[in-house]
Each structure stands twice: as structure tokens, then as C-alpha cells.
């Protein structure tokens, strides 16, 4: 074989090899990716939403994705919403989530849950939070700014599919038919909500979280809150910050500090109006189960129009929302029984 031919063969083989490896990684990642987004949105379902079809976007930690049910809000108000949450989503992470989400949606309002103001600077969920994001400039920036220093380069450089394999391949022995069924067709029913059915037996009273104020972390969170405010202003999207209701609350010291730095709705102030039952509506003292989340979402459905948020397209075909709502109701019913 001539040298020229050898070189050409080598190049062709390498290109085929690279294509096969990339194809393998993408297909494998799609199959092994957890289909139940139990720790916030997995982005693939969010990106499957019709462009500019969401009226309200919710951002934050489990205090959002366990507490806010978009289908319940829609059922009562016709307002479409989506929870773009992530486990222990810090404010820097929320900032990049918002920037990424607003590339495909133009909501009337962004709702940002502010528990993250008091989170640690870096959390164990950062790999999942960044890993789920689509490969983009925002993802790279999120990795470089919001991830802990030891993981930054890896998270910034690692393609999402490869990261999925690295982080999720332990699921291989436990894959189900649904993993194949939803491999390339994300399950869009939850709209970012995580369904919790268990009722905690130990939630009997409202308690105060002994979280200390770490000035350094708080300063970073505040810096990114300002960035979020600026960005929403620039994008002409209303920003509403809030604190989700819970039975395990930040101390008055923290709340008063937050009040001094940010304007927000503290839904704990409306706790009594929500009609909550401590023994039935909580998954744990921090999070609602499906019953509590339904009540809180019904409350939000009333609150949103008061803030001037209305269904942006009343004539839209509501097939998917009807289906979402029916599925949620049916799941709640099955838990009730």
C-alpha cells in the first residue's frame, strides 16, 4: 500500500471511529439518563416546550420543584408555567439557568425562590445542575463561575452526554423499559415538578432552621441576585423573588437581613391562608408532598393574576397541559386512595 493510501485509510478510519464514539456516547447517554427528574429539571424536557409558550418560569432549589405544580396552576388560571429548578440551586446557578432558559422562552415573569441566598457557595448538586444544561456558553460560564474550583474545568470541558455517562452509568443494571421509551422523547408531563407522595409524620410544628449567615457566601449570592435583576430588566421580564412556605424556616435574623437587601414575597406570611395540614401536606419539614404542593400552587394561581400575569395565549391548543393536569390529578388520586 502506498504511503498516500495508508494516510487516507488512517484518516477515514479515524473519522469513522470518532463518529462512532460520539454516536455511542449520545445514544448511551440518552438511554441511561434518569427519566424522572427528581432533582429539578433535566433541561431536555424544558427544551421540548414550544418556543415562547410559557408565561411564568420558576427558578430555585427543591423549595420550588417540590412545591410548585405547573399543571395545577394552569388548571386554575390558564397560566402556563415551568419549574427550572435544581438541587440546592445557588444564586450563581440560578443566574445561568435564567439566562439559558430565556433563550427559548419569553415569559411574562420570572419567579426566583430565595432560599439559595443562604446556601453554601458550592453544593453537591452542582454537577447535576450543570450537567443537565445543554452545551452552551451559559453552561460553560456556569461551570467556571458557579461550580467549586476543583470541578470547574472538568464540568466546563465535559460534553453533557459524556458527563451523563460518567455520572449515571451506575444505573445500567437497573434500566427499565421507560429508559428506552423516553430515551429520545423526554417525558414532558411534570413541567419541572417533582412528585412526592409520602407524608411526613414528624412535622408537627413550625421550627426555625439554625442556618448561620456566612457573609462571604451571602455576598456572592447577593452579587448574583443583582445580576439577575439587571438581566431581567434588560430582557423586560418581571422578576418576583419569593420564599416558599415551609415548616422549617430561616431565622428572623436572616429574613431581616434579606429584607434589607431584596424585595421579595414571603409566602410563609400566607401560611395560614393556604389551608395546610401539617400531618398530611408535607413530605418533610422543608418540602410539600403532592397535597401541599397542590394547595400552594392553587394559591399561586390566584396570586399571579393579582400581579398582572395572565394567560398569554388563551386560544392556544391546550392538549399537553390538559394531559399534564390529568396526569397530576390521577397521581394525587391514587395516593389519596
Amino acid at each position: 500500500m502506498s504511503v498516500k493510501r495508508k494516510v487516507i485509510t488512517e484518516i477515514v478510519a479515524f473519522v469513522l471511529f470518532a463518529a462512532a464514539v460520539i454516536g455511542f456516547i449520545r445514544v448511551s447517554a440518552a438511554v441511561i439518563r434518569p427519566k424522572n427528574a427528581d432533582y429539578g429539571t433535566d433541561w431536555s424536557s424544558f427544551l421540548a416546550e414550544d418556543k415562547n409558550s410559557i408565561d411564568v418560569l420558576f427558578f430555585g432549589s427543591s423549595m420550588v420543584y417540590c412545591d410548585v405544580v405547573p399543571s395545577a396552576i394552569w388548571r386554575q388560571s390558564g397560566i402556563t408555567s415551568y419549574v427550572v429548578g435544581g438541587g440546592e440551586q445557588t444564586l450563581p446557578m440560578s443566574y445561568y439557568y435564567i439566562r439559558q432558559a430565556l433563550k427559548t422562552q419569553k415569559p411574562q415573569a420570572v419567579f426566583l425562590e430565595l432560599s439559595g441566598m443562604f446556601f453554601d457557595r458550592y453544593t453537591n448538586y452542582e454537577e447535576a445542575n450543570i450537567g443537565y444544561m445543554p452545551w452552551s456558553l451559559e453552561r460553560t460560564k456556569a461551570a467556571l463561575e458557579a461550580a467549586s474550583p476543583a470541578r470547574r474545568v472538568f464540568l466546563a470541558a465535559c460534553p453533557p452526554s459524556l458527563l451523563t455517562i460518567i455520572k449515571q452509568h451506575y444505573r445500567l443494571p437497573n434500566l427499565t423499559a421507560d429508559d428506552l421509551r423516553f430515551a429520545f422523547r423526554p417525558d414532558v408531563h411534570q413541567a419541572g415538578y417533582t412528585f412526592l407522595s409520602k407524608a411526613a409524620s414528624d412535622v408537627t410544628e413550625i421550627r426555625t432552621r439554625p442556618t448561620p449567615l456566612v457573609e462571604k457566601n451571602y455576598a456572592v449570592a447577593l452579587e448574583y441576585l443583582r445580576k439577575i435583576e439587571d438581566f431581567c430588566r434588560q430582557e423586560e421580564v418581571a422578576l418576583y423573588c419569593f420564599i416558599s412556605p415551609s415548616a422549617y424556616r430561616y431565622s428572623e435574623t436572616l429574613m431581616s437581613r434579606l429584607r434589607a437587601d431584596a424585595e421579595f414575597i414571603n409566602f410563609n406570611d400566607d401560611f395560614d391562608s393556604l389551608g395546610l395540614d401539617l400531618s398530611r401536606d408535607f413530605f418533610d419539614s422543608l418540602h410539600f408532598n403532592c397535597f401541599g404542593a397542590e394547595k400552594f400552587s392553587a394559591f399561586l394561581a390566584q396570586k399571579l393574576p393579582e400581579l398582572g400575569i395572565v394567560p398569554s395565549d388563551p386560544d392556544r391548543s391546550d392538549g399537553v397541559w390538559t394531559e399534564r393536569s390529568a396526569q397530576f390529578v390521577s397521581k394525587v388520586d391514587s395516593v389519596s386512595q
Binding site: 479515524f14 464514539v21 455511542f24 448511551s28 455520572k167 452509568h169 451506575y170 445500567l172
Partner: peptide, 20 residues
């Protein structure tokens, strides 16, 4: 390249590394 593909992909998918 076939051997490389097999070794690389099977290690990625079946290797005892990362989470879990």
C-alpha cells in the same frame, strides 16, 4: 480502530468509576 472503539466505549459504560 474497532478494538479502540470497543475498549473505550465499554470502559466508559461498564467501568467502575464515577458516581456509584
Amino acid at each position: 480502530y474497532g478494538v479502540w472503539f470497543f475498549l473505550l466505549c465499554s470502559t466508559l459504560l461498564l467501568g467502575a468509576y464515577g458516581a456509584g
